[in-house]
Amino acid sequence: QVRNELALANAQELINKINEKCFSKCITKPGNKLDSSEQTCVAKCMDRYMEAWNIVSRAYISRVQRESQGESL
């Protein structure tokens, strides 16, 4: 259960960040509705943010592993 809550908090934080970053990138002048070009932009931005999140995760975890191996040498 603790693990589920953690996964949920993690997903929630990711959604919040995507919301913040992609709103600021894609909706520069908020209009009467979220038009189709804004929706396309948010969809692309969201995919890019998750890609970036994966790249950053890999880079960080691999660094942490290298550092902890260095310590044990």
């Binding site: 959604i15 919301n19 992609c22 908020p30 209009g31 509705k33 948010v42 969809a43 969201m46």
Partner: peptide, 21 residues
């Protein structure tokens, strides 16, 4: 108008992201 639309569009974006996920 900008302030009102800003709130509405931010919430739309939020719903759009969750739905797409």
């Amino acid at each position: 108008t900008c302030l009102t639309n800003c709130v509405e569009r931010f919430l739309d974006t939020s719903l759009f992201i969750v739905k797409r996920l």
